[in-house]
Measured scan of single mutants.
Amino acid sequence: KKSYVLIKVKNPKTKETHTIVVPEENLEEVLKALASQPNVKVVDIERFP
């Protein structure tokens, strides 16, 4: 059974918020990819039960 993680990201320029759902096993690479985006800020990470 896969567990999923909900990542909320915000664009500081446009103030838009997006929610991305990723499998927990991919969380680290997704966070690394997001960290390299200049106008993306991770605001929240939630685990799915």
Rank of each mutant, 00 (worst) to 15 (best):
K1E: 14
K2Q: 14
K2N: 11
K2G: 15
S3A: 12
S3R: 08
S3E: 13
Y4M: 06
Y4F: 09
V5N: 02
V5G: 01
V5Y: 15
L6N: 04
L6Q: 09
I7N: 00
K8P: 00
K8Y: 08
K8F: 10
K8S: 09
V9A: 02
V9Q: 00
V9I: 06
V9H: 02
V9P: 00
K10Q: 15
K10C: 15
N11K: 04
N11H: 06
N11M: 04
K13M: 14
T14A: 03
T14E: 04
T14Y: 04
K15Y: 09
K15A: 11
E16D: 05
T17Y: 08
H18R: 14
H18M: 13
H18E: 07
T19I: 08
I20L: 13
I20N: 01
I20R: 02
I20E: 01
I20D: 00
V21Q: 06
V21T: 09
V21H: 04
V22P: 00
V22S: 02
V22R: 01
V22E: 01
P23L: 14
P23D: 11
E24T: 09
E24L: 09
E24W: 11
E24P: 04
E24S: 07
E25C: 04
E25H: 08
N26S: 10
E28A: 12
E28W: 07
E29N: 12
E29R: 14
V30G: 01
V30H: 03
A33C: 14
L34M: 05
A35G: 11
A35Q: 09
A35C: 05
S36V: 07
S36T: 08
S36G: 09
Q37T: 10
Q37D: 14
Q37A: 05
P38I: 07
P38A: 10
P38F: 04
P38Y: 03
N39F: 07
N39D: 13
N39R: 03
N39C: 07
V40C: 13
V40G: 02
K41P: 02
V42T: 01
V42R: 01
D44V: 11
D44I: 10
D44L: 12
D44C: 12
I45F: 04
I45A: 02
I45R: 01
I45N: 01
I45P: 01
I45T: 03
I45S: 01
E46P: 01
E46G: 07
E46T: 14
R47M: 08
F48Y: 13
F48L: 14
P49I: 09
P49D: 13
P49W: 04
P49Q: 11
P49S: 05
P49V: 11
